[in-house]
Each structure stands twice: as structure tokens, then as C-alpha cells.
Computed example of a mutant assay.
Amino acid sequence: MVSSNILGARILDLALEVEDHLIISDLHLGYEEALNYQGLMIPKFQYPKIIHRMEEIHSRSECSRIIINGDLKHEFGKINRQEWKETLKFIDYLQERFQEIILIKGNHDPLTPIIAQKTGLEVYSNYSTGNFQVMHGDRIPEKWDEIKEENIVIGHEHPAVGIRSGERIEKIKCFLSGEFRGKNLIVMPSFNFITEGSDVLHEKLLSPFLKEMKHDEMEVFGVEKFETFYFGKISHLLKVQPEPYHYDSHFIDFKS
């Protein structure tokens, strides 16, 4: 286990503390119902796990504000019944515990402004706090040179690493840290429990940030139940397990 600090921010399980702001990303509420529509019949188990993990995180944090960094819900062009129910319940839950909720628009959020309007919130394309600029990460801002903050926090990628132990391979959610266009970049894992995410060692990259940069020089911080593990750079991990492999959970795809 290593220090949970990155560039002055603190890793707290799947969340990131930046000054008085707690950041979480990519919840994809309602994902089970979307899979059910596709014929993949899985139970609706994620919401209780999200609340349980939030309770643990909140008990260890003194932040009074929370940022949801995109993809609060899953469906692109509609709001299914599960999404309506769970997003409204979740926002109620957060409003009881935080002074302010900041919603950042993700690529799965074209209809999130409707939810925000119903709950009295606003949706932002990006949000600045101290020396950190928070954005979802599905696109690079056109006016990049006008960003004054030295540190950028994104989600969208759902980063994980596949750790091989004999014949068994297990994905572990992780934070990534590297340099992008002269700024420090932090990539957050998803706050989603249906899948661990995309293996940054071998699977297709989603974020244009990682596609543009030399992402194999990024540092990897694995997270597992409030413990943080430093795995070194992606390039080092590729030397340990260079061969691609396949996962049984091939049907889980968040799309770009």
C-alpha cells in the first residue's frame, strides 16, 4: 500500500478529494435495465452497492461539496424507469449530506439537464476548484490554451488493470496520472459495480486525452477497498504481461 496523494489530491477509494470537493465519476445508474433490454438478464444490484460505498467514503471525508464528473445515468437518448428512480433517489441522498452538488455533463448525459432541472441543480461542461479543472474527458476543450489550472481531472475512460496470477486474471480499478499538453492529468476509475472497467494495458482506449498522449508513460494507482497500490508505469506493466488476453465479460461495453 502506498500514499494516496496525487498532485495534492487525495485518493479515497473510488473518489478523489480536491480541497473541499469530493469527486466521483461514471456511475451509469440504470445500466442493469439497459442490459435487460438487450436480453442480458441481470438483477438490479448496483444502487445499494453505490450507496454502501458512498456511506463508507462519506464517513472518512470532511468534504462539504461533491462533483459528479459525468455519466450519472447510462442511457444515451432516453431516461428509463430505473434511471428516473435511482438518479432522483441518489441526488436526494447527496443533498442530505453535502452543501453543494455539481453535475458535469458526460457523453451519456444528453438528458441529464432534465433531471437537474427537476432537482434544482445545474449541469456544467467543466468545473474549476483551486488549481484543478474537472471535466468528463470525452472531448478535449477547443480553448485549451485558456485553461489556467495546472491539474486536469477526467473520467470517461473507466481505467482498470488486468493482474495475472497463474491462469487467473483479475481486473482492478485504478487511477492514472501523467502529463497532457503541459498539464498534469488524473484519470479516475468508474463508480460503477457492474464492470471493473477497461484494461488500459490491452483494451481499446476511449478518451481522446489518452489517445493523443503517450499513455504508456502514465503511472497506475490501483484501488481496492480503501487501499491504494502503486503499480508503476503502464509501460512497466506491459513488460510483465505483454500478451493480450480475453475476458469472459465481453458483453459489457460502455461505448465511447
Score class of each variant (00 low, 15 high):
Lys171Arg: 12
Lys171Gly: 04
Lys171Leu: 02
Lys171Glu: 04
Ile172Cys: 06
Ile172Asn: 03
Phe175Gly: 07
Phe175Asp: 14
Phe175Ser: 09
Leu176Phe: 01
Leu176Thr: 12
Leu176Cys: 15
Ser177Gln: 15
Ser177Tyr: 13
Ser177Leu: 09
Ser177Trp: 02
Gly178Val: 05
Glu179Tyr: 08
Glu179Ser: 10
Glu179Val: 15
Phe180Val: 10
Phe180Ile: 14
Arg181Leu: 04
Arg181Thr: 12
Arg181Ala: 12
Gly182Cys: 12
Gly182Tyr: 06
Gly182Glu: 10
Gly182Asp: 07
Gly182Thr: 09
Gly182Ala: 09
Lys183Gln: 11
Lys183Thr: 11
Lys183Asp: 11
Lys183Asn: 05
Lys183Arg: 15
Asn184Val: 12
Asn184Gly: 14
Asn184Cys: 02
Asn184Tyr: 07
Leu185Trp: 09
Leu185Asn: 11
Ile186Asp: 07
Ile186Ser: 05
Ile186Val: 14
Val187Arg: 01
Val187Tyr: 03
Val187Thr: 03
Val187Gly: 06
Val187Glu: 10
Met188Phe: 07
Pro189Lys: 09
Pro189Ser: 10
Ser190Lys: 01
Ser190Ile: 07
Ser190Cys: 10
Phe191Gly: 06
Phe191Pro: 09
Phe191Trp: 04
Phe191Asn: 05
Asn192Pro: 03
Phe193Tyr: 09
Ile194Ser: 12
Ile194Met: 10
Thr195Ser: 06
Thr195Tyr: 03
Thr195Pro: 00
Glu196Gly: 12
Glu196Gln: 13
Gly197Lys: 02
Ser198Val: 14
Ser198Glu: 12
Ser198Asp: 05
Ser198Tyr: 12
Ser198His: 13
Asp199Cys: 09
Asp199His: 01
Asp199Ile: 06
Asp199Ala: 04
Val200Phe: 01
Val200Glu: 11
Val200His: 07
Val200Gln: 07
Leu201His: 00
Leu201Gln: 08
Leu201Tyr: 00
Leu201Pro: 04
Leu201Asp: 05
